[in-house]
Amino acid sequence: MRKYLVLFAVLLLAGILAACGDDGGGEDSESSGGEDSIKIVAAHNQTDPENPYQDGLLAFKEAAESESDGQIEVEVHAGTIGTEEAELVEKLKTGAADVVLVSPGFMTSTGIDQVDLFAFPYLFDSYDHWETVVNGEVGDEMAQIINEESNNDFKMLGYWTAGVRHYYGKEPVEEIGDLEGMTIRTQTSGVVSEFWEEVGTVPTSVAWGELYQALQQDVVDSAENAYPYFVQQDHHQTENGKYITETGHDYTTRFLLINGNEFDNYTEEQQEIIMSAAEKSVEAERESLYSQEEEYKEIAKEDGAEINEIDRQPFIDIAEPIQDKYAKELGVEDLLEKIREAK
């Protein structure tokens, strides 16, 4: 009798344990939401929490998690899994990140040279012009190029901006000749480099995280970027950064990308939610950037930076033949013409 009681107890305990281990996917799923839940790692390279990039990705997170009732979890990384965009591109390819934000310059390292079109100096003359282009036919064509050339490693979720870039250096620039011989932190190859060489400067490579020190210690005479980025990093408070000249040479484009192969594995409902969240992130990031441009310009003034405007036409005259040259090399002459016609 005792044998049968022991056997019964063992069988009963085994049944209880089996039931606990088969609870519909709790601990074995990506999150506590169930077997259809997914976790998305979304990353950008800026470490300042006030950055528009962060606002955009937090809007993506809020929309995706809300619209999916928690079935989609988004983990946002602000520079914590890579402060260099090349790192983020690689992480997207290998699956270490699911959504990343990158610039055209770093996308060319993947072999998709056509994206360099969006790095052309003086390609756009206003935010209205920029939005017309990226929200329209040219934006759609570039998204298709990126997807096809990457064999679906990269799928476009939306176009963000990093602001309009201006020159800042150790001396005021009243005319183009004042730039002669100045070292400038910028890209050191390609269309951007050639433009800065043509205006008389010496392009110099300095990592973004090291630029404050480089300006302070006279490693470079100058740099170029948009107000929310260089003012947040206090570049305008260095001796080689306090004279700002509004060259307006680049209304920047940034690509919000997801791994296309992974995206294709999601359910149709999850894909729709992700695309909807991406639209909300685009709106949030642009709105944040536009408001911060004026905000950080005023902060720069209050901190003692000197700001001046300049006749941009001599710069544009140098930029346009460079645009023509590189558009032909990249095979995007038709896209360049469409952008010019959209002004």
Rank of each mutant, 00 (worst) to 15 (best):
N261T: 09
Y227T: 07
S103Q: 11
N259H: 14
E131C: 04
E131F: 10
T201R: 10
R254W: 06
A300C: 10
L92P: 12
V206I: 15
H77I: 11
D153K: 09
D98C: 02
V134L: 01
A277R: 01
P104T: 04
G24H: 04
G111S: 04
E65Y: 06
G24L: 04
F118N: 00
Q233G: 05
H44V: 03
D36M: 10
T47D: 06
N225S: 13
V206T: 09
T201H: 09
A305V: 03
D55I: 15
V99H: 00
N151C: 03
E287F: 00
I299S: 06
Y4C: 02
E224D: 10
E239C: 03
P228I: 03
P104C: 02
N151A: 13
W208F: 04
I339K: 11
K301V: 13
E30I: 05
L335C: 06
N152R: 12
E67A: 15
E272Q: 02
S126L: 10
Q313Y: 09
F154S: 06
L58T: 07
D116W: 06
L92M: 10
V74S: 12
G190W: 15
N259R: 11
V173N: 12
R2I: 15
Y212L: 15
Q54D: 13
V115P: 01
S68G: 08
K297N: 04
T94D: 15
L123E: 12
E137C: 04
L330Y: 15
G181M: 09
E75H: 07
E90N: 14
L179D: 02
F255Y: 15
K301P: 01
R185Q: 14
T80E: 14
G200K: 11
G34P: 00
G169K: 01
D98G: 05
Y127K: 09
T132V: 01
S288N: 01
S103E: 13
V173H: 08
T161N: 01
P172L: 08
G111N: 07
A305K: 10
Y229C: 05
K61F: 00
E73M: 09
N152E: 15
T201W: 05
A226N: 07
Y122Q: 08
E30C: 07
G304C: 12
E224R: 14
V332C: 03
E329C: 05
E285G: 04
D334A: 12
Y53H: 14
A284M: 01
A59V: 00
H249F: 10
I316K: 14
E341R: 13
E90Q: 13
A214W: 02
E295G: 06
Y212Q: 14
E73K: 14
N240H: 07
A78P: 08
T253E: 09
E295N: 09
D98F: 01
K3Y: 13
F124G: 02
I72V: 14
T252I: 03
T253N: 13
A284K: 02
I81G: 09
V231S: 04
D116C: 05
G105R: 12
L57N: 00
G331E: 10
T188C: 08
D250A: 03
I310V: 15
A226W: 12
D250E: 11
F8K: 14
